[in-house]
Amino acid sequence: MPQLDFSVFPSQLFWLSISFFTMLFLMSKIIIPRIAEMINLRKEKIDDYLQKAAEIKEKAEKSLAKYQEALQKATSEANQSLLKTQQDLKTLMECKQADLSAELAAQIKEGEQKIAQGKQKALKQVEEMSAELAMDVVKKLGLKVTEAQIRKAIEVSVKE
């Protein structure tokens, strides 16, 4: 087998070393730096973008927190003012109700007074009219009863 021919070993070793080390030199000085440069550049750029993205995210989170805080604040303020308005309305209503009931009570009292007066007047009129009627009846019957007696009798009967 020609593969096992060791007489060519010096030549093989010599030329292989030359070509291998030449290749090592070419690769490490020219090819690898060119590849590494681009890969590192890309990595840097990606890292940069990632960092930027992280920053933006942080910002967004901050503004979200701010917004939520503001929202909470606004909600609590609104609740407070709502509560206050409700209370105000309640007091106002109570006040008005009290006024109204006082007025109504006064009116009722007045009305009752008027009714009582009317009743008194009516009773007096009834008395008068009954007296007159009684007088007429007595006159027609020809009984001897004085006006004072009749009036007294009526007064008694009305009072009963």
Binding site: S7, V8, P10, S11, Q12, F14, W15, L16, S19, F20
Partner: peptide, 12 residues
């Protein structure tokens, strides 16, 4: 003998 052979040629 360190002749430039066909093997060396293909290494290069």
């Amino acid at each position: 003998d360190i002749s430039f052979t066909n093997s060396s040629l293909f290494m290069v």
